[in-house]
């Protein structure tokens, strides 16, 4: 009777339980959640807008007026760093949502669509994977032009293939499982199988992939913007802030102009990777075998 009174936990709840016992992941979360709150709320409490110019402080060093200093045209580095974070977040979340959807759909078509669909989908994946990312990014970005949505599109286009492979493998495995046969025996159609059985049983892959890919997308966006192919100035982004600070004079004499956006980039990527690793461990089916 005592054993029965134990609280029923869904597989998701048990994974969450393992997640909160992971120190690195908690650290990532402790870093990310306040950062998100600050990012989203800064226009309310910060006097300077990212493009406001303070002509009295060109290349001004950090002070009470400008906590992170100002850049060469007198814009507040703190508000630009925060705005850059917003842009990074917007670009990475949108591109990851897009690439996750594409990856899942291609994987599903591959697994359920029969031999020809599988062959075509997987050869397409091979093709996309062989494209050298940097050059491909440059070409696409120069065709699609700079801007937030073309950056989202470019990043998404490059990052779905790995996910579609993983989804395909999982769905192949699920397809042969008895409960899928049983479900077909109950009269379930393909869409039902895919979204009632396929999707919930692949959620671990999707969550882990999406999290790690957010970090990746932030880096890609910064890289693109640094090369002048991502977010066009004057819109702030970590990448084009770094680009603006790359002259030797700025590098040596006004370190706050690159230190803060660069540091924010490192911390964001680090925090998200910690969370992603924690999620991966939490979803690992072997995790419950060892330990208590």
């Amino acid at each position: 009777m005592l054993a029965l009174s134990r609280k029923t936990a869904s597989p998701l709840a048990r994974a969450a339980g393992r997640f909160v016992h992971n120190r690195a992941a908690l650290f990532g979360l402790a870093l990310l959640i306040p950062a998100l709150l600050i990012l989203l709320s800064y226009p309310v409490w910060l006097a300077d807008a990212p493009n406001d110019i303070d002509l009295l402080a060109l290349n001004g060093e950090p002070s009470w007026r400008h906590l992170f200093g100002t850049d060469g045209v007198g814009r507040d580095v703190l508000s630009r760093t925060l705005e850059g974070g917003r842009i990074s977040l917007l670009v990475s979340v949108c591109s990851v949502a897009l690439s996750t959807a594409v990856g899942f759909i291609v994987g599903a078509v591959s697994a359920f669509g029969g031999r020809w669909a599988d062959a075509i989908a997987m050869r397409t994946v091979d093709l996309v994977m062989t494209l050298p990312p940097a050059i491909f990014l440059l070409v696409i970005a120069s065709i699609a032009g700079a801007g937030i949505w073309s950056t989202v599109f470019v990043i998404a286009l490059l990052s779905w293939p790995v996910l579609s492979r993983m989804v395909r493998a999982r769905l192949f495995e699920l397809r042969e499982r008895d409960f899928v046969l049983a479900s077909r025996g109950m009269g379930a159609g393909m869409w039902h199988l895919l979204f009632r059985h396929g999707l919930p049983n692949s959620i671990d892959i999707l969550v882990v992939y999406a999290t790690l890919q957010v970090a990746n997308a932030i880096l890609l966006e910064a890289g693109l913007s640094f090369l002048g192919l991502g977010i066009p100035p004057p819109t702030a982004s970590w990448g084009n802030m770094l680009n603006g600070a790359r002259s030797t004079v700025v590098l040596e004499q006004f370190p706050w102009e690159w230190l803060f956006p660069g540091g924010a980039l490192v911390l964001a990527v680090l925090a998200i990777n910690f969370i992603g690793d924690g999620l991966r461990d939490a979803f690992d089916p072997r995790a419950e075998l060892g330990g208590s």
């Binding site: 869904s10 597989p11 998701l12 499982r177 008895d178 409960f179 046969l181 049983a182 479900s183 077909r184 025996g185 109950m186 009269g187 379930a188 159609g189 009632r196 059985h197 919930p200 049983n201 959620i203």
Partner: peptide, 22 residues
Amino acid sequence: RSVRGREIGMVFQEPMTSLNPV
């Protein structure tokens, strides 16, 4: 499909694997 489950029910050998774990 409308016959399966509605008109004919089926019970499988392995109760361990014929239920969806999630």
